[in-house]
Design a protein around this nucleic acid. Structure first.
Lengths: 244, 244
DNA sequence: GAGTGGTCTAGACCACCCT
DNA sequence: GGGTGGTCTAGACCACTCC
């Protein structure tokens, strides 16, 4: 009963979503205990279970909730890590890494073309990076051009790209990044339990190194609730000259 | 008939989405002509209209399609603008601006707290920014702390924040940015025709100025297909020292 | 009036988890 | 076995656009 409390928004599932979000922030639905099932919420709000599911799915895409089939829907602890792009050293303290696979692949993602990758197949290392807690925060696909020997490959599986390069005496000469969002690719959707079809935050990168022929490309995918990028500029910014 | 071509993926709507995406990239569905209606696609793929709608809605969220009730669903021209964060001057050539509203409001968004905004109500200017073509690319909400007189307010409605400050002799001393994604707030959903509940790319910003008491906060919201952020660092990057 | 997309509903099946 | 979420379907209503 009672969708009198739901009048605020235009669509029903939006109202439901906002009401549930309100309860989460108020603490009515604490983490570690499943929230009421779709059937119960359906009855409480007086709307169809499908509408409830729709609202819950949207909240999953935002990283507010996570659902486990057979168990229930849970409120996620909101621990978002901020990666400071202006700190030229991405030190990423206490990052732990889980290696997923090492393959040879071509880069197929069309938006990667902005970074002008080679068309040949490259060494591809996929891994999951977590910070502090052991909850996965980043799904990384690294592509290494041309020839590096076996030991370095192991390094790429065990450490961050920048660290692996550094430890092998390879210096980074220039780097390009691009931040956008796209639907989960690879196993990212399963790793982060992002509902199918919804986008994730993404950072494409390219490192040009001091070692001839060694260029590193990659894609970082993260759920919105786990990662954000910051940029801090002190000092004197050149203001644009007045137009006209 | 024929979902034999759809076997690839796990869920039906995902397969439908991928097939439609394939047709768009192949040019089977050109822009400016509506793609087949949900009813026709439903018949062609042999799946329920709802499943088709679900797939189309996900593609809308990604900015690939845009739907107009009563007219049809259209392929969006993919023209994405790249904002280079490392170019300290965001010159934003040929940006055109449409003023939406000037109000007094408090900052309510909880993620804004990262930038430590004041709790008092501030002057709030909302506008839409387009580049080159007249298709909206950014929905901007600017909050100006404390007292600025009427003329400057007009400037904020007509120009970019940085320009408005510069033209009034106010220098930016430091700036902070945070890039993430969140569901459309304000009128952003309508402006960009993002389906309800899906996230948009977002950049929160804060400018500390040379004029005492004048601090500028704001939120830029953009659809994923219209904007991405890039960062290019040449030169010598300090590599992190090998751990241990 | 016919066609469009947007939304909501009712009902079903599945895979999964827990007892 | 009973509960959970995930998915798919059929059918309906609305607001809108175009003829």
């Amino acid at each position: 009963m009672i969708n009198s409390q739901l009048r605020a928004s235009s669509s029903l599932h939006q109202s439901v979503r906002e009401e549930i979000l309100k309860r989460i922030t108020k603490g009515t639905y604490p983490p570690s205990v499943p929230i009421p099932s779709t059937a119960m919420l359906s009855e409480e709000f007086g709307v169809s279970p499908i509408t409830i599911k729709r609202a819950l799915r949207d909240l999953q895409a935002l990283g507010v909730l996570t659902a486990v089939a057979g168990k229930g829907t849970f409120v996620k602890e909101q621990k978002r890590f901020l990666i400071d792009l202006s700190a030229l050293v991405f030190s990423w303290e206490n990052a732990s890494i889980r290696l997923l696979s090492v393959t040879r692949e071509k880069i197929t993602d069309p938006t990667m073309r902005v970074l002008k990758p080679p068309s040949e197949s490259m060494l591809c290392v996929r891994k999951i990076i977590s910070f502090g807690d052991e909850i996965p925060a980043v799904y990384d696909s690294t592509y290494i051009s041309s020839d590096v020997d076996g030991e370095i490959i192991d390094e790429f599986g065990e450490r961050l790209v920048t660290e692996a390069l550094s430890r092998n005496g390879i210096r980074i000469r220039s780097e390009s990044h691009m931040i956008d969002a796209a639907p989960a690719a690879g196993q990212a959707a399963e790793v982060f339990a992002i509902p199918n079809g919804y986008p994730m935050l993404r950072r494409l990168y390219k490192f040009t190194t001091s070692k001839p022929g060694v260029t590193v490309f990659g894609v970082l995918q993260s759920p919105f609730d786990r990662l954000a990028y910051t940029l801090n500029l002190q000092s004197d910014r050149k203001n644009p000259a007045p137009k006209k």
